[in-house]
Design a protein around this nucleic acid. Structure first.
Lengths: 146, 146
DNA sequence: AAATATAGTGGACAAAAGCCACTAAATAAT
DNA sequence: ATTATTTAGTGGCTTTTGTCCACTATATTT
């Protein structure tokens, strides 16, 4: 019980404010093709080099059934392809198609622009401050996990 | 275009990490009585001293119809009561019942504990750092809005 | 007074997400 | 080696969440 109530509540205020701001950005980001979760899945497939559905489900904290359906959709849209694993015939590895990679790259690009947009009214020094602040928190947060 | 791509992406990493952490906390928070949106509405009624449904809908970025239904539910659960406005007979002001206030207080309490839980592995100095970091970001963020 | 706008509600529907049961393959136990 | 148990993925079904539209009643504008 280190921080007093008032400061805890200020943290909560920030959380609300920040998550809402990010939520607004996310809304703008998404076209009609993919919803937010589908986009996350796509990006994670790109990042986590050929994961399995289960790995994705764990990573994104999704129901495995739901994950399966999302992947199905992405396959139908020709953004992802499934190949059977050789070691484990139950399992599947997921890869982006060329089109999927393009869409992912586009999402990634736009997502960067959104952050720049969020910071658009800050001058260079302030943006640096924001960045270092984030880094500090990230560091503390990972420390807090261990 | 102040911050380079790498740093933007570090910010994004933090965002993912942080929102996920908060999401996990929120899940633990909610009992069977209220879902997340209902809880938000309840807390906002407490905070925004007797708002109208429309004010809530705008504040929380909800559909007015959806908001109406949520309020209906909260009224049925005897957590909120509606009283007709005297100035505008179309409108309604919302107040918490005693029970509603209790539930809101409980939610608020638990929500504070969640933040403490998030920081549980940090020592006093680190928690202070976290707090000041948050404050800094909050300040920059509000500045960014104007 | 008539036209228009606004607050709230409910019906119908759509999208998002979760639960459960099942198949098939892999692993552990006997 | 056979049986039992666990695990990866899938589909059916349901619930939750959210949207769209139309409607009533009051307020505001013309």
């Amino acid at each position: 019980m280190v921080l007093p109530k008032k400061q805890i509540n200020q943290i909560r205020d920030f959380n609300r404010q920040y998550t809402q701001a990010l939520g607004v950005l996310d809304k703008r980001l998404l076209g009609p093709t993919l919803n937010w979760t589908e986009a996350r899945v796509l990006l994670e497939i790109k990042l986590n080099h050929c994961p399995t559905p289960l790995a994705l489900a764990r990573l994104l904290d999704l129901d495995k059934s739901y994950t399966s359906r999302i992947i199905k959709k992405l396959v139908q849209k020709q953004l992802v392809s499934k190949t059977a694993s050789t070691q484990d015939l139950r399992s599947v590895t997921l890869t982006l198609t060329a089109k999927g990679d393009e869409v992912a790259r586009d999402l990634d690009q736009k997502s960067q622009e959104q952050i720049r947009w969020l910071l658009r009214n800050l001058n260079a020094a302030e943006q640096e401050e924001f960045y270092t602040g984030i880094r500090k928190l990230a560091q503390l947060l990972t420390k807090g996990k261990s």
